[in-house]
Design a protein around this nucleic acid. Structure first.
Lengths: 177, 177
DNA sequence: ATTTAACCGAACAACAAGTTCGGTATCGTA
DNA sequence: TACGATACCGAACTTGTTGTTCGGTTAAAT
């Protein structure tokens, strides 16, 4: 990939992130993005079809690193949920700078959607063998929703507690062990 | 309030809801709303400053009925969380027609934000006396997030299970009793 | 050094937001 | 029933956004 392309792409991503911390997604204009990024109008549209495409592309790059870059060292070894969650939190901390701004922004829900999709896949694998009288997808929604909340809390607290401690809080609130 | 105003207001609300089931909030134009509602352009702006104002107004009307219309018959009597939650679910079921479309829509997160605000106030009251080594606001986020997920699941299932049964599922996943 | 490809930016058409205003229809009330 | 108030209508207009086009410029790759 051409150096210029990478430069433009990251400039647009950075500008977009910076703007998201200031205002809501649907109030941001392409004009503002290219001004902030110092990029020509036609260049923007050479990279992304629309503002929505930009959103998608950024989410994919962002969450790829957290969930798919690393082949889950605990899968197949043991089935300790707390360990898995800590592991995930470590990855999230690695991406702190990229993540915290947008997840805490006015439009955080947009990114949360992608985040939850990945979480869902993770928990799905874990609870496949679990048995109680609560419907499977109820459990899944519950775990995904509450863990996502935990991550948000953690970011808001500037990640002062350790990944292990934070995962511990989650386990202490959840009846599944 | 003038009959004509009420008529216009509800026509706009209905149109807005109908459109939300078809497309995302930020892709809906004022033009589409007034076409769907059969209302003049200037009339729309006489009622609402912007599309965002419309969103706010609709949320307020919607969640008012669920959370504030009824003076919480259980407050001060006992402290049974499960009862409180069932009670809330009954109210939600009353508003099923107005709620389900928008909460399941592409822009459901927008409404969820309001919904969670109310849930937060509700849980806050409940856990004020509760003690364990998990931070208070972590607990609050956890409960709000996971109960919101429970409601979404319930709506998606077309509310086939009873409010009591559904609240029971929630309690079975939550370590707080 | 040369070729290839990305970037620039001005100009443009299509469309959306929000305002204004004179005219019409409907409401609440006497 | 009549009358005054007021809500609604809709066309026209300004301003701002989107997405495209194209000829010229700059920088990467080899």
């Amino acid at each position: 990939m051409d150096r210029r392309q990478k430069k433009t792409r990251t400039a647009i991503f950075c500008a977009f992130r910076a703007l998201l911390e200031k205002k809501r997604y649907d109030h941001i204009t392409v004009q503002e993005i290219i001004d902030e990024a110092n990029v020509g109008r036609s260049t923007f549209y050479a990279h992304f079809e629309t503002k929505d495409s930009l959103l998608n592309a950024m989410c994919e790059e962002l969450f790829y690193h957290i969930f798919e870059d690393d082949p889950c060292p605990w899968v197949g070894r043991d089935n300790d949920l707390e360990k898995k969650l800590s592991h995930t939190l470590w990855h999230i901390r690695d991406r702190k700078n990229d993540l915290s701004g947008i997840l805490l922004s006015d439009s955080g829900e947009l990114f949360m959607r992608y985040f939850k999709e990945h979480l869902r896949a993770m928990f799905e694998m874990y609870i496949s063998g679990y048995k109680n009288d609560v419907p499977k997808d109820f459990m899944l929604n519950h775990l995904v929703g509450s863990f996502a909340e935990a991550v948000l809390w953690w970011i808001r607290e500037d990640m002062k507690t350790s990944p292990e401690e934070t995962a511990g809080y989650f386990m202490k609130m959840t009846k599944i062990c």
